[in-house]
């Protein structure tokens, strides 16, 4: 006997529409957060040896694209995530700060590696190394290691995605306040164009 479709109860017809993959119920917040965390675009931006591991994360073996975070952007205006990968020098700090300021809200920062977290090998005798990029821009996730394994950086990206998942749409002020405290640091005048040696 050929199988027959089960009879449809006319009373359940609307409910059926819901179960047929045509309608999903969710909250706006969850939906927006899902969209955002499924396409975290990092800024193409490497400062030292750690950047090599970041490149490995982007390449086939570790493949950050699997997690929707593939397209490394060439401009801060299109990026959601800044992976500060490498030694931040005092000369570089104002540039990092400027790039951060150019990114559109909401924006997130991963401090990758010992140097970026606290000066690393240059903590004591590195006259030119900023002792942690936290002194210049607010950091959301720290990834430890010198350099961290690519898997560790992926874990850092997951942590960012977790943060995004928990984000309240109307609670953005909290993050703004956090950033206010960083107003002063690193706003060094970048030398004007035409300055000798620029």
């Amino acid at each position: 006997m050929p199988p027959t479709a089960p009879p449809v109860n006319p009373a359940n017809q609307n409910q059926d529409l819901l179960t047929k993959d045509t309608i999903l119920l969710t909250t706006v917040e969850d939906f927006v957060n899902w969209c955002r965390r499924s396409s975290v675009w990092p800024l193409t931006f490497g400062l030292a040896c750690c950047a090599i591991e970041m490149m490995a994360v982007g390449a086939t073996k570790f493949d950050i694209d699997r997690f929707g975070s593939g397209p490394f952007r060439g401009t801060p205006r299109q990026a959601d995530l800044m992976i500060v990968a490498g030694t931040v020098t005092h000369k570089m700090a104002p540039r990092v700060k400027r790039l951060y300021d150019q990114m559109a809200e909401p924006k997130y920062v991963i401090a990758m590696g010992a140097c970026t977290i606290g000066g690393g090998p240059y903590w004591k005798y590195g006259y030119h190394v900023v002792k942690g990029v936290d002194l210049v821009i607010p950091v959301d996730v720290h990834v430890v290691g010198c350099p961290p394994r690519p898997e560790a950086l992926l874990e850092g990206v997951f942590k960012i995605q977790d943060l995004m998942k928990r984000e309240k749409l109307l609670d953005r002020l909290r993050t703004y306040h956090k950033r206010e405290t960083y107003k002063g640091a690193g706003n060094a005048a970048m030398p004007a164009p035409g300055t000798p040696g620029r």
């Binding site: 005092h90 700090a93 104002p94 006259y127 030119h128 900023v130 002792k131 002194l135 210049v136 002063g184 640091a185 690193g186 706003n187 060094a188 005048a189």
Partner: peptide, 18 residues
């Protein structure tokens, strides 16, 4: 001049503590 033996590290640089 940072590589001189008598160089004193700056306490801060452009508002960033050192």
């Amino acid at each position: 001049y940072p590589l001189r033996k008598d160089y004193v590290f700056p306490k801060e640089y452009h508002g960033i503590k050192n």
